[in-house]
């Protein structure tokens, strides 16, 4: 039996992960409530997400839900258990998922750098033309003349060396 995940969310009270899904070849939309047990504000969201995804009872239903999404849902729950408002938790996500353009990434360790890279990879994948895409062209040449009249990027000033 194949299940097609439609939506996946979290319920704070009682703590549970909720999946809206359809069974293959059937029209009816169903809801599955997966209670969250033994989870506190000190728990590891990554581990909890993995355990749920590999849980023999839920596994088949969660095939279409990414580990990343489950992890985020657990983070929301964790934030709630730690006294954060939903808005605060979501703002944290936003910060974690955006790039600080001023940050010098040469100074990050492997783990932090990998995090930034995976954030930037999202846009890369979104804009990516793959070799197997029907409209893929190997050599795309576009001219962007750099003449004097262009507005400056604003990054050339204030560097001290410019004077």
């Amino acid at each position: 039996m194949t299940y097609i995940a439609k939506k996946c969310g979290v319920c704070f009270q009682p703590p549970s992960i909720i999946l809206i899904y359809k069974e293959d070849n059937k029209d009816k939309t169903r809801q599955r409530i997966m209670p969250v047990r033994n989870f506190s504000k000190f728990s590891d969201c990554g581990l909890a997400a993995e355990q749920l995804k590999n849980n023999p009872r839920h596994k088949a239903y969660l095939e279409g839900v990414s580990l990343h999404q489950l992890q985020k849902l657990y983070s929301l729950l964790k934030g709630h258990l730690g006294g954060e408002s939903l808005a605060e938790s979501l703002e944290k996500f936003r910060q974690e998922e955006t790039i600080d353009p001023e940050e010098d990434m040469n100074k990050l360790d492997d783990k932090e750098l990998a995090k930034r890279k995976s954030i930037m990879d999202e846009l890369f994948e979104k804009n990516r033309k793959k070799k197997d895409d029907p409209d893929f062209v190997y050599n795309i040449e576009v001219e962007f003349p750099q003449d004097e009249q262009l507005e400056s990027c604003g990054w050339d000033v204030e560097s001290g060396e410019e004077i």
């Binding site: 846009l123 795309i140 750099q146 262009l150 400056s152």
Partner: peptide, 20 residues
């Protein structure tokens, strides 16, 4: 927009995208 670094050192300059 203009990026003057390349011009300053008379280097060739390309706008590219590894994605598209």
């Amino acid at each position: 927009k203009s990026f003057n670094f390349a011009r300053k050192f008379s280097l060739p300059f390309y706008f590219v995208s590894a994605a598209d």
